[in-house]
C-alpha cells in the first residue's frame, strides 16, 4: 500500500505538467492582458503599457514564458502577482485556509445530514417520509448556489438578523454558517440520493437475507451489514463531491465576500493576473488529486477485496 501511495504521488507530476500546459495556453490566449486592465476605466499611455508588459515578461513569446514558468514551478515558485505586490506563493498561502475551512464545513454538513437522510429514506421506502426527504434532496440538487445563498442571506441576515450577511469576521463560527450551508446543501442532497440508492441496492443482497436468517434484529443488520456495504458506494460520490466543492467555492466565496482562494481566483481572472490564476487553479487541482488518492486508499481500508500493489 505504501508503494502504491508513492506511485500515485509520483503520477501527480505528469498530471500537473499536462494540466499546467493546457492552463497556460488557455489563459495566455485570453483577450486583453493585465497591463490593459491595470488602469481600470482610465486609459493608460501606450508607453506605460509597454513598460508593464516588459516588466511582467509579457513581451516574450509564449513558449519562452512557459519554459520560464515551468522552471520556477519546479523550484516551487509560482511567480509574482502582476498587480498585487506579493509573491503568488504568499498570496495563496494566506487564502487557502479560509477556503479549506469553508469546504470542510460544507462537507461535514453534507455528510452528517445527507447520509442519515438517505438511510432514513431507503428504510422507509415508499412512505411519505421517503417522498418528503427526496423532494428536499431533489430541490437541493436543483437549486443554484448563488440563488440559494441570496435567499439565505435575505432570510437569516436581513430579516431575522441571526447571521452576518457576508465577510470573514475574525474567522469566527457565526460568519461561517451561511456560506457553509450554501456550499454544502447541493452535496448533501446528492449524497442523500446516492445513499438511498446504495442502501436499497444492498438491502437486496443475499447476505442480508443470511443475516436475517440468523435472527439478527433489523437495527443490527442495518448497522453492521448494510451500513458498511453502502459505505463503499457512498465513498465514491463523497470523494467526487469534496473535490468539486473546492471548485464551487469560487461562487460562494464571491457571494459572501469570503477571503478565500475562490474569490481571489475570480478577481484575478477579471484582472488577467495570470500568475495568480495559474497558481490558484493548480492548488485546486492538487486538492482534487489528493482527495481522490485519499478516497482510493479509504476503499482499501473499508473493503478487504480491494488490494493495491
Amino acid at each position: 500500500m505504501l508503494a502504491y501511495t508513492v506511485r500515485r504521488l509520483l503520477q501527480f507530476i505528469p498530471t500537473i505538467i499536462g494540466i499546467s500546459l493546457i492552463m497556460f495556453c488557455l489563459l495566455n490566449v485570453l483577450p486583453g492582458n493585465a497591463a490593459l486592465m491595470a488602469g481600470g476605466k482610465r486609459e493608460l499611455s501606450p508607453e506605460l503599457i509597454e513598460k508593464m508588459k516588459k516588466d511582467w515578461g509579457l513581451d516574450k513569446p509564449l513558449y519562452v514564458r512557459y519554459l520560464i514558468y515551468m522552471k520556477d514551478l519546479a523550484h516551487g515558485d509560482l511567480g509574482q502577482s502582476f498587480l498585487r505586490q506579493e509573491k503568488v506563493n504568499d498570496l495563496l498561502a494566506s487564502r487557502i485556509w479560509p477556503t479549506l475551512r469553508l469546504a470542510v464545513s460544507a462537507m461535514v454538513i453534507a455528510l452528517t445530514i445527507g447520509i442519515p437522510l438517505g438511510f432514513f429514506s431507503a428504510l422507509r421506502q415508499g412512505t411519505w417520509g421517503d417522498s418528503a426527504s427526496m423532494i428536499v434532496a431533489v430541490s437541493g440538487v436543483a437549486m443554484p448556489q448563488f440563488w440559494l445563498g441570496l435567499l439565505l442571506m435575505l432570510l437569516f441576515s436581513a430579516k431575522m438578523n441571526w447571521f452576518p450577511t457576508s465577510g470573514y469576521g475574525d474567522g469566527d463560527f457565526i460568519h461561517l454558517v451561511l456560506p457553509a450551508i450554501t456550499l454544502g446543501l447541493g452535496s448533501m442532497a446528492l449524497l442523500a440520493r446516492t445513499t438511498r440508492a446504495a442502501v436499497l441496492e444492498v438491502l437486496e443482497e443475499d447476505f442480508i437475507r443470511t443475516a436475517r436468517s440468523k435472527g439478527l434484529s433489523r437495527f443490527l443488520i442495518n448497522r453492521r451489514h448494510v451500513f458498511q456495504n453502502t459505505l463503499v458506494l457512498i465513498l465514491t460520490t463523497a470523494g467526487l463531491q469534496f473535490g468539486s466543492l473546492i471548485g464551487q467555492t469560487v461562487i460562494v466565496e464571491k457571494l459572501f465576500s469570503w477571503p478565500g482562494l475562490g474569490s481571489l481566483l475570480v478577481d484575478s481572472i477579471f484582472l488577467r493576473d495570470i500568475p495568480v490564476v495559474q497558481g490558484g487553479i493548480l492548488m485546486i487541482i492538487l486538492a482534487f488529486l489528493i482527495v481522490n488518492l485519499v478516497v482510493d486508499l479509504l476503499y482499501c481500508v473499508i473493503d478487504p477485496r480491494i488490494k493495491y500493489q
Partner: peptide
C-alpha cells in the same frame, strides 16, 4: 428473531453471495 438461527436455521443456494463480503 429468537427462533431464526436458534431453532430453525437455513442454508441458501448461492454460497458466493450469501456471505457479507466485508466481514
Amino acid at each position: 428473531q429468537d427462533i431464526r438461527g436458534d431453532k430453525i436455521a437455513m442454508i441458501f443456494q448461492e454460497p458466493m453471495t450469501s456471505l457479507n463480503p466485508l466481514m
